[in-house]
Design a protein around this nucleic acid. Structure first.
Lengths: 106, 106
DNA sequence: ATTATATATAAACATATGGTTATATACTAA
DNA sequence: TTAGTATATAACCATATGTTTATATATAAT
């Protein structure tokens, strides 16, 4: 692949928050406010991380009325599956969100 | 895997120069001065990039008298092969180095 | 011992990055 | 149309990062 594209990909992955986001999205698509809730970070911060991931084509977005749902993309990277598989399991966080009624949405 | 370890790995890969180094080391082990020659960068700059790669356990070093040869490691990362396979082929650069007599070493 | 070569480290600086607060935009509902 | 909710963007700031120049360390050769 092109080194510039690869650099952008690894830059996008070179941050703990963004790896957390990818690890969460591996389970299911989530909207911004759900990520804010789970990661206990401010909404602008999450939004800017999502923008980086989107620019690197690691996630894609889908609008549903007022919400924007993000999900894993990365299909341009032949190694993406191997990398995602190395991320820790975050299903517990998702369960907590659902248990606290924070799901579907905000 | 641990997110901190993964973050360090992707940080180490999030730079064009370091991806170039990894792409070159895929072909064969190289010493610092050979990398300096191929990449047309200063020796301290290359050394510091190598240090980051070494700290992330992506490369290892081997001393041979005055030279220190670096080679690919990364065995702690289950995805390393897939990622290295996505790097561009740099055999031409290696050939040029050998043709110009810059090999074995400096 | 002295000189030369290979590499590492340190200091300084400019740029990039991530977080915060404030504000703008988009959609919904009344 | 107005108010409310979800998200994006902008401006600002502190910290991280990459490069350069200068210097230190390590090995080799004389």
């Amino acid at each position: 692949m092109e080194l510039d594209q690869l650099t952008e990909c690894y830059k996008a992955m070179a941050d703990k928050t963004r790896l957390n986001i990818l690890a969460l999205l591996r389970h299911e698509e989530l909207c911004v406010c759900e990520l804010v809730e789970i990661l206990k970070m401010t909404q602008p911060s999450i939004s800017q991380h999502l923008r980086k991931l989107k620019q690197a084509k690691l996630v894609k977005e889908r609008r549903n009325s007022q919400w924007i749902f993000y999900s894993i993309d990365g299909e341009i990277y032949p190694f993406i599956k191997a990398n995602l598989d190395a991320l820790p399991d975050m299903s517990e966080k998702i369960e907590q969100l659902k248990a606290s009624g924070g799901k579907v949405c905000c």
